[in-house]
Nucleic acid binder design. Sequence first.
DNA 1: ATAGGGTTAG
Length: 688
Amino acid sequence: MASTPSSTLSPLYESNIFCNFNSPQKFTFPLKLHSKSCIRTTQVSLQEQSQVSNPNNSQYSDRKAVSSSKSKLWVNPKSPRASELKRKSYDFRYASLMKVAESLDSCKPVEEDVFNVLADLGDKIVEQDAVVTLNNMTNAETALLAMKYFQQRLKLSKEVIVYNVTLKVLRKNKDLDRAEKVFDEMLERGVKPDNVTFSTIISCARQCNLPEKAIEWFEKLPSFGCEPDDVTYSVMIDAYGKAGNVDMALSLYDRARTEKWRIDAVTFATLIRIYGAAGNFDGCLNVYEEMKALSVKPNMTVYNSLLDAMGRARRPWQAKNIYGEMLSNGFQPSWGTYASLIRAYGRARYSEDALKIYKEMKEKGLELSVVLYNTLLAMCADVGLTDEAVNIFEEMKSSASETCQPDSWTYSSLITIFSCSGKVSEAEFTLNEMMEAGFEPNIFVLTSLIQCYGKAGRTDDVVRTFDRLSDLGLSADERFTGCLLNVLTQTAKEDLHKLTICLERANPKLGYVVKFLVDDEVEEKGAFKKHATELLDCATTDVQKAYCNCLIDICVNLNQLERACELLDVGLTLNIYTDIMSRTATQWSLHLKSLSLGAALTALHIWVNDLNKALESGEEFPSLLGINTGHGKHKYSEKGLAGVFESHLKELNAPFHEAPDKAGWFLTTKVAATSWLESRRAQEVVAA
DNA sequence: ATAGGGTTAG
């Protein structure tokens, strides 16, 4: 018997994912250091060699060595002690250059002041001082003056580097205009730009949201005698991606590949981001696989881009796998990792996973942002986690950071949670708190409040909240109107007229249809159905089903079963409801998931009628008949459709019984169904 | 840390 390739390959593939990215030496090497002293000696002398051979590193160390010898302290230049001294003296110089950079950032942008600050560095400045100082600056104006200072005082052997770090400062300021001027100045002074110059300007253009400019700069690169290298390609791939030119980005990737550039992890991360932004999530995973096939080790950027993409894709399980892979490869999650995970889990309502990440961030002392807090709160609202939401909200408020304080999104989620769980006074309290914090109620908040008051049977407050919308200069959207309509399904008959007035104002067509029902108007044949069709046909798919469900519920409440059936029929015709009834050779089924209670009862009524017709016409029943209510216990209501249906079926004496092994299914046999339908018919005859 | 890519999102 031949074994299939996949069955032999997959275990290998698995072990590959989880074990192989880091070379095993990385783990065993430190052990060797401890166990064998001779290896330790070798290691240190290698380190020293590299430091000595690096002229940049030895610059300050030499000076320190001189001062050491002045104090009559001889240190063997090859000893560990010497390399430690070198490092310390370098650190010291570096720290003072950082301080100068900081003073320059807050210095007045006039030559005199800037030069004064720089005078603190003394006369013995070297070229690297200029590079380090400028590299750590953020203020564009003083950086340009500082560069001028260094150009005057130093004989620069690699002036292009000084220009390149200055261009970085301009990039930090997203100042492409100035960067272009500095480039011209370079040319005037006879300094030849290199790939670093171009990649910096190109990424500057990209960050300024001017991807066309980036492309322009890329295209003029050859005329300066430069051939793009791997980094320049990487920046350009990103720029093309940002410009929405995915094809160009990918063809550049191909070119980089055929020209045998070493494509590194950062470029792969860029490609993953491009695919992710384009919504091609399988493309992201393919890039990742290709990267691994080329033996490029993923880094944090790759993992974070992938996690972000899987979050967008709403594939939390894939995010979870990738995260596990990342951890088993020895990476520590960064802030960005956690953020992507919270988003991926939160949007997909993986509440336990999301809250676990949140806890871990807190334990590590990582600060969340408002966006992350709001993501968590929106998730809590989705799944009905009231207590957790309150805790998170309290923590936001007690946070020392300005950037974590609640905003209107925060309050809105919280008000939604209280509204859905029927906590009227908490919702009102939070609304007041929101206004005290300086936020006007927005349409989301008002939508929640309408639901809140509706659920509590406070019709006058619903009307008051409705009026508030226009007082605030807002107009009803489909969601808001949908919630208002939903309130009607829960309102006592004598109060309905107050709400139909609101509905007529929010959506005249909808108001007309509802008024028809509430007033139980006598109609010309087909008039109601015609108006309902027109209404539902223009509604967007987002709310079509909600509208239709609510309208049917209202009919059922008002005991207008015929119109309920008409509405269900409209819903089926317009494909608002699909696959409600299905027939296979062995089973006929009624699928009620995503139907409201009223709609489900109406559908049952129609289905039973159909069964009767089948019976009358002598059609053969299948061995099983089933009703699927879905097991979904609704998050904010104790009893799901299944529970209500169970008692309803009992009332009807229907022989359907909940299947023990299939949650949400009520099943019966051909024999039981037939005898039930026949006894019903007999009763009807008697009644007539 | 010591000249170029990436990063915080709804």
